[in-house]
């Protein structure tokens, strides 16, 4: 019974359906319960919210990631699924404290100084929220000193930096140096991304990880998170 409803939640994440009125990616789904209705039912059946997240939402999102990487799914599909997870988390959050669940971790996101591009960073932020992280998005064109100050005050486990321009990616190196100077470098894992950025560039500036696309970023953060937890 519990497994059935969790499976349905997972399927509806993949179909991008928030409520029963939504169409899915496949035809003929309108009218069947969407994720919000399914979660209300699951909670009424006393299913553990943590199981709803891990076996329903997170597993569904992982499959969306696989489909995206196989080019069966595209950005709008991914955003639809991420919105479903967001709506689901809004319902689940009040129940989590009672269930003794702990948040996965906090991540600060920013597009570096001089760079006004925020679409990539926003997509990664949405996916991280969908994966259960608490995300604080500083915005774009953010001064190095503002980023360092946010790391000092918020004490996040992760810092995500984005740049779309060849001329601004150098500012990522500035942030790395400023974190060192402030004595904060070993307090936070830094993951970078953006069109001109590469794995080699990440290594060269001493970042902890590089995400080639939205799901790549989630994968890197998850593996760093698990390595840290182990």
């Amino acid at each position: 019974m519990a497994d059935d409803i969790l499976k349905l939640i997972q399927e509806n994440v993949i179909q991008g359906r928030i409520t029963k009125d939504d169409e899915g990616f496949d035809d003929g789904m309108a009218g069947q319960p969407g994720v919000t209705e399914l979660i209300e039912t699951a909670l009424a059946q006393k299913i553990n919210p943590q199981d709803i997240i891990s076996k329903g939402l997170t597993r569904g999102m992982a499959i969306v990631g696989e489909k995206f990487e196989a080019k069966q799914y595209f950005i709008p599909d991914m955003l639809a699924s991420a919105q479903v997870v967001g709506a689901a988390m809004d319902i689940l959050e009040p129940h989590l404290a009672g269930a003794g669940a702990k948040a996965k971790g906090k991540i600060i996101m920013a597009t570096v100084k001089g760079d006004l591009h925020d679409i990539g960073k926003n997509i990664v932020s949405i996916l991280l929220r969908g994966a259960g992280y608490t995300v604080k998005d500083l915005g774009n064109d953010i001064d190095t000193s503002t980023i360092v100050e946010a790391v000092r005050e918020e004490k996040p486990q992760f810092l995500g930096l984005s740049a779309l321009l060849i001329s601004t990616m150098a500012n990522m190196a500035d942030v790395m140096q400023a974190l060192k100077d402030a004595g904060l470098r070993d307090k936070v894992k830094v993951v970078i991304g953006g069109a001109p950025v590469s794995e080699e560039f990440a290594k060269s500036i001493g970042a902890d990880g590089y995400g080639a696309d939205g799901f790549g970023a989630i994968r890197v953060v998850e593996s760093l998170f698990n390595a840290n937890a182990a």
Partner: peptide, 8 residues
């Protein structure tokens, strides 16, 4: 021009 995939 911003991507239509992100904001219709």
């Amino acid at each position: 021009v911003l991507p239509i995939s992100v904001d219709s």
